[in-house]
């Protein structure tokens, strides 16, 4: 854990995960790019509206019996709905905890680099090959990054449009996010509320 100061307001900011790329100042909301021993101001965005979430930055507890710590979140918004993607430290690994439509899913990076099909050629119900897995496309949609808080491993600037595909393969959920510069593939498993224990 390293302690730095917000370049905008001077408030102290703590970085828990050494791989975090961006941290959002808890006081002034400035998005700060993490460099080796310094922070670069990327812009200031409105703080996230306080929609109910079971986590807040710093929440600790267990998921499926293994310890976790919520480090930060990105909020995706589309017409009439939104979902939160929490970046968590999960027993020493990086993971993403997604709250969407009242369902909980924990995601892990699936592959560093895989071939993914052109999203425009896909439709719901179709099978696609991701690595050596056959994935059924459950949903295709678009969303915009609303904003974020805490520290983040992956970062997209608020306002960036992403196309996402939700799929299923071998009893697991698969999430593919297409943004302007990159494609991320995650695989995850659904959680029940009772799978998650949060320390008060």
């Amino acid at each position: 854990m390293s302690s730095l100061q917000c370049t905008s307001c001077g408030a102290p900011v703590e970085i828990v995960n050494r791989f975090s790329k961006v941290i959002v100042c808890n006081y002034c909301g400035t998005h700060l790019k993490v460099k080796e021993n310094s922070l670069d101001e990327m812009g200031r965005y409105p703080k996230l509206a306080d929609y109910p979430s079971i986590f807040r930055v710093g929440s600790k507890g267990t998921i499926l019996g293994r310890p976790f710590r919520a480090l930060g979140r990105m909020r995706y918004k589309s017409q009439g709905w939104h979902y939160d993607e929490w970046f968590i430290d999960y027993d020493g690994d990086s993971a993403w905890f997604c709250e969407d439509d009242g369902t909980y899913t924990i995601y892990f990076d699936m592959f560093e680099a895989v071939e993914v099909p052109d999203v425009n050629s896909l439709k719901a119900g179709q099978n696609i090959e991701i690595g050596d897995k056959r994935v059924m496309v459950k949903e295709i949609g678009t969303a915009k990054i609303e904003s974020g808080e805490g520290e983040l491993l992956y970062y997209l600037e608020p306002g960036t449009e992403v196309t996402f595909i939700d799929g299923v393969a071998e009893g697991k959920k698969v999430s593919i996010e297409y943004s302007e510069n990159e494609v991320e593939v995650f695989t995850g498993r659904p959680l029940l509320r009772r799978d998650i224990a949060i320390e008060e």
Partner: peptide
Amino acid sequence: EYVPQSINLE
């Protein structure tokens, strides 16, 4: 919601 072990609509 249910996540099946396998599903193939095609």
